[in-house]
Amino acid sequence: MTAHRFLFAIALFVAACSSRTERNNTATDSPKTTAIASDIGYYQLDGDSVVIPRVTIALQLSPKAEAKLKADKETVIVAAFFSGTPKDTTSQEFLESGEVGVKDQKIELTTARVATFENLKFARKDYDALADKDIRLLVNVYSGRRSSPDNLLDCGIVEGPMSDLRGKRLPITGKLIYGDD
């Protein structure tokens, strides 16, 4: 190999190494720019956020409840509350409820009876502050209160750890609070 080719090969190698280091620093400096999510348990990391696994709620209402909602042009709210046990158990929220909320999300349904909670995120710092990394899910269902100031529905709930509920289609049944025996 001639000296000229040798110097060219060295220069090319140094340029390639410099380019790679620059790309890596850019990805580290701005984690949001990376398209690669990493896993922590059954969660995924997206920059400084933790992505909660998908959960689908399948609502089955009684025929009377369906008829009332349709006649009144009423909606249904499916509300999901994600919470956990913190390392620091002195917070007011923990003292009042025995847990701390990490994410809440509501889905309003008009005629559909399936609500899918997906791509929900909460702060990594909140995840790191949890003593138990298996967050809990509580799902409540109620009427949208468009036709009445009061809730019209009496529905079951879904409650449990995300390790058991993640990725599943979970049923909730319901009926009218009054007149649906």
Rank of each mutant, 00 (worst) to 15 (best):
A58L: 04
T28W: 00
S62P: 02
K175M: 10
L165E: 10
T33N: 01
V14N: 05
R166T: 05
V78C: 04
F6G: 08
D164A: 13
L109N: 13
T21W: 00
R5L: 14
A80K: 12
S62D: 03
F81C: 06
K70P: 02
R20T: 00
F6W: 07
V100D: 14
L170S: 12
D48V: 13
K121Y: 09
F81L: 13
L59W: 05
D72L: 13
A27L: 00
A9N: 11
T2W: 09
G41P: 01
K125T: 11
A58P: 00
T111P: 02
R54W: 03
F122D: 09
L61N: 06
D48P: 10
K168N: 09
M1G: 15
D29Q: 04
R54E: 14
M162W: 07
Y178C: 03
G47N: 14
A129D: 15
R145H: 10
T89C: 09
Y178K: 15
K168S: 08
S97M: 03
E159T: 11
V14R: 04
E93D: 08
R145A: 14
Y42Q: 10
G98S: 09
E108D: 12
S83P: 01
L165R: 08
D126S: 14
F82T: 10
K68E: 15
A67R: 13
I52R: 11
D88Q: 12
T85I: 14
P149Y: 02
V55T: 13
Y42R: 12
L165H: 09
F94C: 12
S49H: 07
F122P: 02
A3F: 06
S97P: 00
D132V: 11
Y142T: 13
I52M: 09
V114L: 10
D132Q: 10
